[in-house]
Design a protein around this nucleic acid. Sequence first.
DNA 1: TACACGATTTACT
DNA 2: GTAAATCGTGTAT
Length: 200
Amino acid sequence: MRLNSTFFIENDVLDLSKYLLGCTFHSMIDGVHCSGIITETEAYTGINDRASHAFGNRRTPRTEVMYCAGGISYVYFTYGLHHLFNVVTGAENDPHAVLIRAIYPLTGINAMFQRVGAKKGLHALSNGPAKLTKCLGITLEHNRMDLDGDLLWFEDNFRHAIARTVAGPRVGVDYAGEDALLPYRFVGFPATASKLQQTK
DNA sequence: TACACGATTTACT
DNA sequence: GTAAATCGTGTAT
């Protein structure tokens, strides 16, 4: 079952960050369908969150997309070489977002290896926010994109495979002062592989 | 126009 | 363990 924009608009960003664990994230880019089970997310909770690009109600050409209604992508470029992918959530003018930090490869694995280089193992293929965008072929072209469309979408398929969810501080946000300590990073630990049966 | 830096990854010592 | 890669973005001039 696909997740639609209403779902991303009406639910709280922290709840969504946890809910997305075990959902699948899909791309159809360069004619290839790739997907993986989401295993790690982070929540960025709006204008009062010092770790967010939208802190202090900052509106710039880059951050403007976060102020749109939920259900669209926020892709940005960092460190001169990496793209990071977020889901914009919440109502218009309330700039919340979920950073997708890791997925476990499910379909299109050959294409993913081609994009990232075939020298690493399956478990290390897309277990980082910049690695998964590279695997799925996501670039700045996929910013501000409908997340229930033909190119990027989510499905609620494998949440039963997540046995336990652990929260901790977000990664790489030391500049955020006290907000760097907030437990807004969520990691889903899988159940045994035998439970990995798709449900619709 | 100029400059400092980043919600990271990789390779190398 | 440390460092390099590398450029869009934000803020200051």
